[in-house]
Amino acid sequence: MKAFAHLSATELRLLARDPGSLFFMVAFPSMLLMLNGGSDRLEIHLPGYLAMILAIGGITALPATLATYRERKVLRRLATTPVSPFVLLTAQIVAQLSMALAGAAIVTGVGVIGFGVDPPAHPAWLAPAFVLSALMCYAIGFVIAAVVPRARTAELIGLLVMFPMIFLAGAAIPREGVPETMHRIGDYLPLTHAVTALRESWSDVPTLPPLLILSGIVVLGTAVAAALFRWE
């Protein structure tokens, strides 16, 4: 437990020292919100930004970190200590989730206090929607880290998966405005269900299906990653 706490704190510190993660997870969402500050439908944008924060961290930063640890034999070094490598993976999740919560808290604060966005209507639904969306992104990140051997490639693949997804899933911009074909592609993206779950619990009527779909992706992704992941 002591090792886990230290490792989680250390991973969070390292993540916060990564300028890319810090900017895109903490500052960038608020900047987007301000750019859209004139819109009277900010309660549509804001939950999308939460999904975007999770996707940037989980689908891009997470696999890049894991692949780097594998390539530079950090995982191997850790395997000679009493700490199980699974503790490291869990610490990664804790660090990612903490960073995402910080980003989410800031963009929510800016939205609610600065732009008069209504606070979440169903916080009891928003919390599980946020956590499941996070785990879904981490599952995708773990799959990328499992199938892509090299660190640089893992980072690139993470970006290639994450970028189109945050736009087509309605995370960075609402999906209402995008052309029909694009819209249909979005229907099949995992992140779309995260956006739906977050939006419904923020300002609409929360429903169970998006949460169930997210859970399914978490289970499937974790199983695939566990089967394919190589420690060396």
Partner: peptide, 24 residues
């Protein structure tokens, strides 16, 4: 180990404190 690095942004004192926490 011959190979076995630490994360680039991890500081010396942090590494020592972290590894100390791994042991009973």
């Amino acid at each position: 180990l011959q190979q076995g690095e630490l994360p680039d942004r991890l500081r010396v004192a942090e590494a020592m404190r972290l590894f100390a926490a791994f042991y009973d």
